[in-house]
Nucleic acid binder design. Structure first.
Length: 583
DNA sequence: GATTTCACGTA
DNA sequence: CGTACGTGAAATCC
């Protein structure tokens, strides 16, 4: 039966959970109500458009498989993403997530192991029954073993196709999602909404990985030429150019002294020979010696060029910029403690000079949108501090804060940041004390995070993400380490909540942007870059702002001031041809 | 050959 | 004015 018809007959409605599993050959299985279906992936697109269920995936790999096949789903519930939210940590494979949901000791999850040569693939229909016989745990029809764990035969992947198994796997995914939903409801608050947006952010990540960032090769090569010279013809020429760059620094050295500039140890001796004594050679430390000896400025200049040459040079361009003018890397929806998005291949730490080369395709424009002062605004929201929330009504939040504290703006900003992230020197001074008096609720929130983290107690972000502070290596009594743990904890709650708000905004923009042909092409912690046909650019720019208002209203309710914190979030939004044009 | 340290880019 | 992450080269470990 046709999938849409089957879903309709089962009474599946918008937002209902539908299990989804995909085989490498493009076969998918869908599980809903008491039924399950298997067939070609294209049917899922049709079902998504017709009914828009919330597709349950075990891991983001499903989306990563489907997107290149042209299947882009509206929403999902990703068991791995929700597992990370509920339980923290990085590991989130199906067997591990399932064990947590069933309350089984996660340390004893059966290893997925490796297939021995010649062993039949469980998911190969032809060998279906032979393969599972004699193995512990699950059966060909049941992934759950008698011990309650998922069978390694099912979890180790590398599937060929068996529609029956695929359907079973999709059904079990939906069961896992329902268990997760129940666990999240117990937590109350924002957790279910966060689970949805974190999951859908995984769909966005799969698309970002597939689509890439538009970059103009000619402009990129121009930027490189300006910094490190033209593309070398061969290895010999490259070595010569490198030596020439080194020479610019070494000619400033005292007579007879030389060094390998790529060796920090040798650079330190080199500087010492020039009369500059430093404990290490980091740029911020060398900065104050810039005028002590000409070699320092030359070295700092060399470092900038060397960074571009080694990490973002012609080799980088050749490797990651496709013939279609798209720079690609792998995206993850939530990495590390705070749950920020990450990207590989330099997409998140590209030198500012290269932004000039990020240019919309012909007939298209980029929409650049930056959240303004996101962290203090997030603090106001998550702590529920009414006084700080009042300050968020200003475009520049630090002006009212400075007025409240009776200090100038730079002092107010430092005091705020010191409070949010902890400080290693001094005790905050007068401005710090006034912060405590002016914003006691926000400060108590931060103190509580700091105290819990110091004591090794786990934390939860506003959106419900567990930040693990207990366990291995967290019991040190060393004063410096304890203080660092405190800073880590308070930072994780602010950075983490900001990441949750950002992703909710991003997936809202992703959904609303579809009719305009607007695609998100870069996410950078508090900044979104959209690629959109020129004709729709104005609409898309307004849409991004509207989506922020909508997201903020759901995420930090009470904008009217009657209830909740009523925090205002702002974004700087501009329509540009190149990423470097804005601001 | 794998892991750690230093350094630096982004937020 | 602190935290996070990814990357590359050298240094170090095994």
């Amino acid at each position: 039966m046709d999938l849409v018809t089957a879903l309709r007959q089962a009474g599946v409605r918008r937002g209902d959970l539908a299990g989804l599993a995909a085989a490498p050959d493009g076969t998918v299985a869908v599980a809903f109500a008491d039924a399950a279906w298997a067939g070609p992936a294209a049917a899922v697109t049709a079902a998504d458009e017709a009914l828009r269920p919330r597709w349950v995936t075990w891991t983001p790999e499903t989306a990563q498989q489907l997107v290149p096949m042209g299947v882009r789903l509206a929403t999902c519930w990703d068991v791995a993403a929700v597992h990370r939210l509920l339980f923290g940590g990085w590991r989130a494979d199906p067997g591990f997530a399932w064990a947590h949901l069933r309350g089984l000791p996660p340390g004893q999850v059966p290893a997925a192991g490796s297939r021995s040569p010649g062993e039949a693939d469980l998911f190969d229909a032809a060998h279906e029954h032979d393969a599972a016989s004699g193995t512990a745990g699950g059966t060909p029809d049941n992934p759950v073993g008698p011990d309650g764990y998922l069978s390694p035969e099912w979890t180790r992947g590398g599937w060929a196709i068996s529609p029956a198994r695929l359907r079973r796997w999709a059904r079990l995914g939906r069961e896992a999602a329902e268990l997760q939903g129940a666990a999240l409801h117990d937590g109350g608050g924002m957790a279910v909404a966060t689970a949805r947006s974190e999951s859908t952010a995984e769909l966005l990540c799969a698309e970002l990985s597939a689509d890439g960032l538009p970059m103009d090769r000619t402009t990129a090569e121009q930027v490189l030429t300006g910094v490190i010279g033209p593309r070398p013809a061969g290895a010999a020429e490259a070595a010569a150019m490198r030596a020439a760059r080194d020479g610019e620094v070494l000619r400033q050295a005292p007579a007879g002294v030389t060094a390998d500039l790529r060796s920090p140890v040798q650079v330190r001796s080199l500087l010492a020979a020039a009369g500059v004594e430093v404990p290490d050679t980091r740029a911020w430390r060398l900065e104050e010696f810039r005028d002590s000896h000409p070699i320092v400025a030359a070295l700092l200049e060399w470092r900038k060029a060397e960074r571009i040459a080694t990490t973002y040079g012609y080799a980088w361009l050749d490797e990651h910029l496709g013939p279609d003018g798209r720079l690609r890397g792998a995206w993850t929806g939530s990495d590390g403690a705070a749950g920020r998005m990450t990207a590989s291949n330099g997409l998140h730490n590209m030198p500012a000079a290269m932004r000039r080369a990020v240019i919309a395709a012909p007939g298209h424009a980029l929409i650049r949108a930056d959240l303004g002062q996101i962290e203090p605004r997030v603090l106001a929201a998550v702590s529920g501090d009414r006084a700080l929330a009042a300050a968020t009504s200003a475009d520049d939040l630090y002006l009212p804060v400075a007025a409240q504290l009776g200090v100038d703006r730079p002092t107010a900003k430092v005091a705020m940041i010191a409070a949010m992230y902890g400080q290693t020197t001094g005790h905050g001074g007068q401005a710090g004390r006034r912060m405590r008096a002016a914003y006691p609720v926000a400060m108590a929130y931060l103190d509580s995070a700091d105290g819990s983290a110091r004591a090794g107690r786990d934390l939860r972000t506003y959106g419900g993400r567990l930040v693990r502070m207990s366990g291995g290596g967290q019991n040190s009594a060393d004063t410096a380490r304890v203080a660092a743990r405190g800073r880590y904890g308070r930072n994780a709650l602010i950075q983490g909540a900001a990441a949750e708000l950002f992703k909710m905004w991003a997936v809202t923009v992703r959904a609303r942007g579809v009719p305009l042909g607007a695609r998100i092409v870069l996410c950078l912690h508090d900044e979104l870059l959209l690629h959109v046909p020129c004709d729709e650019a104005e609409k898309a720019a307004r849409l991004v702002g509207d989506c922020l208002e909508e997201t903020a209203a759901r995420w930090a309710p009470g904008g009217g001031g009657a209830e909740g914190a009523g925090v205002r979030f702002i974004a700087d939004i501009s329509i540009v041809r190149s990423w470097a044009d804005a601001k």
